[in-house]
């Protein structure tokens, strides 16, 4: 049995407490149920969704969009980040373009992607990829730049070839940066998917929230948000596990 620490007790207490205060304020008519809904209604709505089963289709669509954007965005970002960090000439040529692209607020791309790729999943994935790519790219690039030059020189003196340097020095040394980019990337991939759905689609969590909002169904909006939070927390804990596995060599506590 895992022991529940004092800290956990406080955390749970804070959560339950706020729910009670919220519920109480609305029931006492201090806060208007139309604007604020109520934890109990939200809970009932969630239960209803989960029993009716329609929700699973929305969830799986958002999940697929998120995962595709995450995998493609980080793959491209890490790959191109590695390449540019080790090929400074190409970087010099591409640098202004990278900066310019990154300066575009990604939300404005959503309508264009919808125009290009339609209302389906592809436009959402594309939006997610543009968000995730730069994060993975900059982190990888930065990580490579900050490889300890003495460790690098040592590996070279010990006879490492270029590909061996990449495998035994650059990649492990960059792993921390890449992993930390993964954690934010997951969040960004979700944002890409949900915002894309919100702005125009026929399925997904973002669509669900937009629908509820369209008919002033506050309970539906909150229920959708709750699902979204749980969704992100689960993905985050998966990345956490991966991180623990890959960075096992690190001194704990840092």
């Amino acid at each position: 049995m895992p022991k529940i620490s004092k800290l956990h007790l406080y955390q749970i207490g804070l959560f339950v407490g706020s729910l009670f205060v919220w519920e109480g304020l609305v029931r006492a008519k201090i806060a208007d149920a139309f604007f604020f809904s109520m934890p109990s209604s939200i809970f009932l709505r969630l239960a209803e969704w989960l029993i009716k089963g329609d929700i699973y289709r929305h969830l799986s669509i958002t999940f697929i969009e998120t995962l595709s954007a995450f995998v493609m965005g980080t793959g491209l970002g890490i790959g191109i980040g590695l390449w540019l960090a080790l090929a400074p000439k190409a970087l010099k040529v591409l640098e202004p373009y990278i900066k310019a692209f990154n300066a575009i607020p990604r939300v404005v791309l959503a309508p264009i992607f919808t125009l290009w790729f339609g209302l389906g999943m592809i436009s959402k994935v594309a939006l997610g990829v543009t968000l995730v790519f730069f994060l993975a790219f900059f982190n990888t690039y930065q990580g490579i730049r900050e490889v300890n030059p003495v460790i690098l020189a040592n590996a070279r003196m010990l006879g490492a070839s270029r590909s061996q340097l990449l495998r035994h020095v650059y990649l492990p040394s960059t792993a921390g940066w890449i992993i930390s980019s993964l954690r934010s990337s997951i969040g960004f991939a979700v944002v890409g998917a949900v915002v894309g759905e919100y702005l125009g689609s026929s399925a997904g969590l973002g669509y669900l929230i937009a629908q509820a909002e369209g008919v002033f169904d506050t309970t539906g909006v909150f229920a959708g948000m709750t699902l979204l939070v749980v969704f992100v927390l689960i993905l985050d804990s998966v990345v956490n596990q991966v991180e623990r596995h890959i960075l096992a060599w690190r001194p704990s506590g840092t």
């Binding site: 460790i151 590996a155 003196m157 010990l158 490492a160 061996q164 035994h168 492990p172 040394s173 060599w249």
Partner: peptide, 29 residues
């Protein structure tokens, strides 16, 4: 290529165990 160089600063690969650090030159070969 004739030279082995023990650096003034720490130069071990922090992500490899002592054993793998010692083995790495042979792995490279």
């Amino acid at each position: 290529r004739w030279v082995g160089y023990l650096f003034q600063q720490d130069a071990l690969l922090p992500w490899k165990t002592a054993l793998d650090n010692v083995a790495i030159g042979l792995i490279f070969r």
